[in-house]
């Protein structure tokens, strides 16, 4: 663990939630700054240079999507948005606008830590290892080899691409839009359906029980997430 404490900016208009987050993050060794409104948050990021931002979608002045968009105009700082159930559209919009991940209220602190960790890892991880291992799955990107429980698996080029992108972003959610964009370069509306088919096939090949997937997790209404693994 690094010696300097990482700084997290918590943006939420509910004092109770800010309090809970401060306590929790403090316990885990992060230092906290707070903001209650969108404009405040933008200033706080510019002035305070935090390492990550936890951003509530339902702010009184600017909505979370707007804040994300403005931040992304000049910084790649990790942004994790907090939303309520049934706010799927806004979630997806925020993610497409550049947010890294999301949490649905009420959430447990374990989830939160995992998300922060993943988000920070991307920005602080020094280099990528070419071999990815998670449970029974081994993916060697240098040699373009995928095997499950030691058995090699034959994937179509598209399936390999999808798997590669997901693994590169393991632990982090990828919206349909983002995934399609990363795989095919553009994201048209009906690509989501195509994606589903590919994912289904992929699952069939790498999951031990495709109907209860372990590696490729469906984030309902948002997209997919590859389980956090080890490089």
């Amino acid at each position: 663990m690094a010696e300097t404490r990482l700084k997290i900016l918590v943006v939420d208009d509910e004092p109770a939630i800010r309090r809970f987050l401060r306590t929790a993050l403090d316990t885990y060794g992060y230092s906290i700054s707070e903001a209650a409104r969108g404009e405040e948050a933008l200033n706080a990021v510019a002035m305070g240079h935090p390492d990550a931002v936890i951003l509530d979608l339902g702010l009184p002045d600017l909505d979370g999507v707007e804040v994300t968009r403005r931040l992304r105009e000049w910084t790649q700082i990790p942004i994790i948005i907090i939303s309520v159930r049934d706010q799927e559209n806004e979630k997806v919009n925020a993610l497409d606008a550049g947010a890294d991940d999301y949490l649905t209220k009420p959430f447990g602190i374990g989830e939160l830590m995992a998300r922060i960790r993943v988000a920070l890892r991307r920005s602080t991880w020094p280099e990528k290892q070419p071999v990815f291992v998670l449970k029974d799955l081994v993916m060697d990107m240098a040699r373009r080899l995928v095997s499950v429980s030691g058995q090699p698996v034959a994937l179509t080029p598209t399936e390999y691409d999808i798997l590669r992108i997901m693994v590169a972003n393991s632990g982090k959610v990828l919206t349909h839009h983002q995934l399609a964009h990363l795989v095919w370069g553009n994201a048209e509306e009906n690509q989501a359906h195509l994606l589903r088919v590919h994912i289904g096939n992929l699952r069939g090949k790498i999951e031990s029980d495709p109907s209860r997937p372990y590696y490729i997790i469906t984030e309902p209404g948002v997209g997919y997430r590859f389980r956090e693994g080890n490089y």
């Binding site: 989501a192 359906h193 589903r196 088919v197 994912i199 289904g200 699952r203 495709p210 109907s211 209860r212 997937p213 997790i217 469906t218 309902p220």
Partner: peptide
């Protein structure tokens, strides 16, 4: 409405 994979839906519910 969207074309969905039944397995996916069941899996999500179980998750």
């Amino acid at each position: 409405k969207d074309i969905c994979d039944v397995q996916d839906v069941v899996g999500s519910a179980l998750e």
